[in-house]
């Protein structure tokens, strides 16, 4: 395990140098709070494969058995298709999945979905990392 962790750290360093400019159409930071990561497991109820962004909905049961329907946002269909997602095949209503993402700033049952763990255990990215589309950490101009 220790070897695996140190190896992963090394990989992270390597990947830091592979800066790949992306484009997020929307501002992550306006809609979502990077300080509020969330991981939820539930049953998919609906998937909207739409541009510019896709959405899916999931019933999540809490400790007391109460069910709440959550909304998740991610990439549009073209981006998802090119990175391994297939409409009506990869994830379907009725599937139990685990989603990692960040909660919306408005506090409702809504989150940005980053990684989805599918029923077979396979993990795919449904949306970009936090902090995309909102200017990142550094403005284009010098701060005087």
């Amino acid at each position: 395990m220790a070897r695996r962790i140190s190896w992963a750290c090394g990989l992270a360093v390597v990947l830091c140098f592979l800066a790949i400019p992306l484009l997020a159409h929307h501002s992550f930071g306006a809609e979502y709070d990077a300080n509020r990561p969330i991981t939820l497991t539930g049953v998919v109820t609906k998937i909207e494969w739409t541009n510019p962004h896709s959405y899916f909905y999931m019933d999540v049961k809490d400790d007391k058995g109460n069910v709440a329907n959550w909304k998740f946002e991610g990439y549009g269909p073209g981006v998802l298709y090119r990175t391994g997602w297939k409409k009506d095949a990869t994830m379907k209503p009725g599937d139990t999945v685990t989603v990692f993402g960040w909660r919306a700033r408005d506090g409702t049952n809504w989150a940005h979905s980053r990684e989805v763990t599918l029923p077979g255990g396979k993990k795919l990215f449904f949306g970009p990392p936090s902090g995309t589309g909102d200017g990142g950490n550094t403005p284009a101009v010098e701060v005087r």
């Binding site: 800066a19 990215f125 995309t132």
Partner: peptide
């Protein structure tokens, strides 16, 4: 997936 974001074209 929770690591800092790679550069976006807005960065």
């Amino acid at each position: 997936p929770s690591a800092p974001a790679t550069l976006s074209s807005n960065d």
